[in-house]
Design a protein around this nucleic acid. Structure first.
Length: 470
RNA sequence: GGGGCCGUGGGGUAGCUUGGUAUCCUUCCAGCUUGGGGUGCUGGUAACUCCAGUUCAAAUCUGGGCGGCCCCA
C-alpha cells in the first residue's frame, strides 16, 4: 500500500477531504478561503449535472437567462426580510477604480433582487404569464464557519429558477412541477431525499413558505441540497411586478423559486463513495467505462487493436468510454480509476482474447464477470443500468434506516429523528437549544401521526423531523 | 467576541528544546526493466509564510504582519 488513507466510517470529515483531493475534483489551494478551483475532472461532473438541469428545465418551458453579478444596494434593500437575512453574509463592492461608489453594490448571494426589477418591466399583461426563467451562475456568500469543498464554499455554482404566475394556485402548480423535476434529477444522481416544509423561523428570507431538499450523509447528518420556495406576492409588491388581467385590473404576480447548488457533487461524493474512492452514478460519471488493456510482450499489437475496437463500439453507442493506454502497470491503473469512481472497468488481455471474452469489474460492488465481445454494447448498457438501480436502492435503504422516532430528548441517536411537535415556536427553539439538533421541518407530503409534543407533551397530530446538519 | 494551536519542495512530513550541511515518503521528468491488483533500479527537478530584530551565523530565538485550523460564547 502506498500511504495510509482515511476510512469512511471512522472519520467521515477527513475521508471526504482526502477523497476530493485524491480524485482531483477540486484544487483548494487558491488563496481565498472557500473559493476553490474546479479542476477538469470535477468540472466534468458538475457540467453533466448542469446539463441534466438544462434538459429538465427546457423540457418544462423554462427559458434560460443570465443576469449581472452585481446588484445595487438600493435594489437589494427593497424587501425587508430578505435584506435582514443576507446582510451579514454578502460581499460588497465599494470602490470602482480610484473612486468610492455612492451606491455600493452587492455580489449576488441569490438573484431575486437582480431579476425582479427587470421582471417588473417584462410583465405587463396576463398573456405574459407564466414567466418561467432560470440561470446557471455563481453566487457569493461570506461563510464564516469552516469551509469544505462543494459543501460549504464562498463562491457557489448553482442554478436558480424564478417564475411568475397569475395567482397563488398557479404558483402552487409550479411547485408541484419542481418536485417532479427534482425526482428526475435525483434519480440520475442515485440520491434519496426528504421534502420538508421549513419552520417559519428557518424559511428563506422573504418567502411565504420554503420546502427544503435534504439528503442523508453516512455520518448521520443531513445535507441540504436545495430548496423550493413559494413567495406568494411578498416580492412582487415591493418590486411592483404587476399585470393587467382579462378584466383590465392590475394584480400582483405570485412567484416561486427553485435552487440547487454544487452541493449535489458533495452529496454524490459523500453518499456513494467508499474506502477506495469515489463511486459515481453512471449518469454523471465523466467516464462510464474505462478499458484497461493487459499487455504482454510479443502481443502488443493484437491486444491494442482489440481494445481500440472495444472503445469504438462503445463510443458509437453513445457510452462515455475511455481507453487507458498509459505506459503503466494494470494494477496501478485499477487503483487510479477506482479513486476516480468510474462505474465499470473492462479488462482485455491475452487470456480474454483467446477465450473470446471481455472481463468486467463493477465499481459499486466489485463484482467481476465477462461477456462475449460481440455483445459488448448490450452487456455494458444493462450492467450500467443495474449499477444505477442498485446504487439508488442502497442509498435509499441507508437513509431510511437512519430515520428514527424519538420520544425523549435524552440519548439522541446520530441520525435523522422524528417526533411529535405541537407547532409552537417556543417548543421548537427549546428543542434546538437543549440538543444539537436542527429542526428540518414537517413533511411536505402528509404523514399520519398521533402522539405528544416532545417538549410540552400536548397532544398533536404533527410530526417534525430534525437532525444534526453538515 | 474570548481562548488555544499551526505555517518546511506539487502533496504529506523530520529537524526547532540545545542556532551552523534541511530528512524521509509520495508526485513529477528522463532512461532501462516489467506487465491479469500500487514492478524494480538509476539519475533528475523542486521547499524553510512574510517583514523586522538578536547573532559571525536563524527553519530554529524575539516582536509584528498575513494565512490556516480547533474550541468556547
Amino acid at each position: 500500500m502506498a500511504g495510509h488513507h482515511m476510512k469512511k466510517d471512522e472519520d467521515f470529515g477527513e475521508w471526504y477531504n482526502d477523497i476530493v483531493e485524491r480524485a482531483n475534483l477540486s484544487d483548494k489551494r487558491y488563496p481565498i478561503k472557500g473559493m476553490n478551483v474546479w479542476t477538469p475532472y470535477g468540472w466534468r461532473i458538475m457540467r453533466q449535472i448542469d446539463q441534466f438541469i438544462r434538459e429538465e428545465l427546457d423540457a418544462t418551458d423554462h427559458d434560460e437567462v443570465c443576469f449581472p453579478l452585481l446588484i445595487p444596494e438600493t435594489e437589494f434593500q427593497k424587501e425587508k426580510d430578505h435584506i435582514k437575512g443576507f446582510d451579514a453574509e454578502v460581499f460588497w463592492v465599494t470602490h470602482a477604480g480610484l473612486n468610492e461608489l455612492d451606491v455600493r453594490m452587492v455580489m449576488r448571494p441569490t438573484s431575486e433582487t437582480a431579476m425582479y426589477p427587470m421582471f417588473a418591466l417584462w410583465v405587463r399583461s396576463h398573456t405574459d404569464l407564466p414567466l418561467k426563467t432560470y440561470q446557471l451562475v455563481n453566487t457569493f456568500r461570506y461563510e464564516t464557519k469552516m469551509t469544505r469543498p462543494f459543501i460549504r464554499v464562498r463562491e457557489i455554482h448553482f442554478f436558480e429558477s424564478h417564475t411568475c404566475h397569475v395567482d397563488y394556485d398557479d404558483a402552487e402548480r409550479q411547485v408541484d412541477e419542481d418536485f417532479s423535476i427534482l425526482e428526475n434529477l435525483m434519480d440520475r444522481l442515485c440520491l434519496p431525499y426528504l421534502l420538508l416544509k421549513r419552520t417559519d423561523w428557518d424559511k428563506f428570507p422573504g418567502a411565504y413558505y420554503t420546502v427544503g431538499i435534504d439528503t442523508y450523509m453516512p455520518n448521520g447528518r443531513t445535507l441540504q441540497l436545495g430548496s423550493i420556495h413559494h413567495y406568494r406576492d411578498n416580492f412582487s409588491k415591493p418590486y411592483e411586478i404587476r399585470y393587467e388581467n382579462a378584466e383590465g385590473e392590475w394584480e400582483y404576480v405570485h412567484q416561486t423559486t427553485y435552487g440547487m447548488s454544487e452541493r449535489l457533487v458533495g452529496a454524490v461524493v459523500g453518499v456513494h463513495g467508499d474506502d477506495k474512492g469515489l463511486v459515481l452514478p453512471p449518469d454523471v460519471a465523466p467516464f462510464q467505462v474505462v478499458i484497461v488493456p493487459i499487455l504482454k510482450k510479443e502481443h502488443y499489437d493484437e491486444i491494442n487493436k482489440a481494445a481500440a475496437d472495444l472503445l469504438s463500439q462503445l463510443k458509437k453507442a453513445g457510452i462515455r468510454a475511455h481507453l487507458d493506454d498509459r505506459d503503466d502497470r494494470p494494477g496501478s491503473k485499477f487503483f487510479d480509476w477506482e479513486i476516480k469512481g468510474v462505474s465499470l472497468r473492462l479488462e482485455l488481455g491475452l487470456h480474454d482474447i483467446q477465450n473470446d471474452v471481455v472481463t468486467y469489474a463493477r465499481r459499486d460492488t466489485g463484482d467481476k464477470g465477462s461477456f462475449p465481445p460481440t455483445e459488448t454494447v448490450t452487456s455494458v448498457t444493462s450492467i450500467l443500468a443495474s449499477i444505477k438501480a442498485d446504487m439508488r436502492a442502497r442509498a435509499t435503504e441507508s437513509m431510511n434506516s437512519g430515520i428514527v422516532i424519538i420520544d425523549s430528548m435524552e440519548n439522541i441517536p446520530e441520525s435523522i429523528v422524528k417526533f411529535g411537535w405541537c407547532g409552537d415556536e417556543a417548543c421548537g427553539h427549546a428543542l434546538e437549544e437543549r440538543t444539537e439538533l436542527n429542526i428540518l421541518g414537517t413533511p411536505r407530503n402528509d404523514e399520519t401521526f398521533q402522539g405528544r409534543c416532545l417538549v410540552c407533551s400536548r397532544e398533536t397530530s404533527t410530526v417534525a423531523y430534525a437532525a444534526r446538519t453538515m
